[in-house]
Amino acid sequence: MRVLVSMTAMTTVLLLLVGCASDFEKRYAEAERMRMLAADAGAEWLQTEKLVSQAKKAAARGDMERASALLEIAQFQAETAIMQAQHEADAWAGRVVQ
């Protein structure tokens, strides 16, 4: 009985860990995809790439909380950079010296 309980517990923990990891992989891929889109628009910010790679390192040493926080910032930066580029697609012309 005891063995069963502990085995169940271990499996649950293992599944949770795997779940977190695959969730991280998914979010990592998404952040990286957005960063590339920002780069394609010529709009990538200075620290986004570093944030993504730091997140990966944090995940590799098991610090999922930090990894997740870093990814969130990277994702935000990439999305905001893309919005910035979309806004600038028209806005720049208004600044041309007349």
Binding site: G42, A43, W45, L46, Q47, Q77, Q84, E88, A91, W92, A93, R95, V96, V97
Partner: peptide
């Protein structure tokens, strides 16, 4: 080149022209 010069970019949201014009 002209578009680059007048476009705001980066986290600080500045165009070349913001500072140098």
């Amino acid at each position: 080149g002209k578009r680059f010069y007048y476009s705001k970019r980066g986290q600080l949201n500045l165009a070349c022209a913001d500072c140098h014009v």
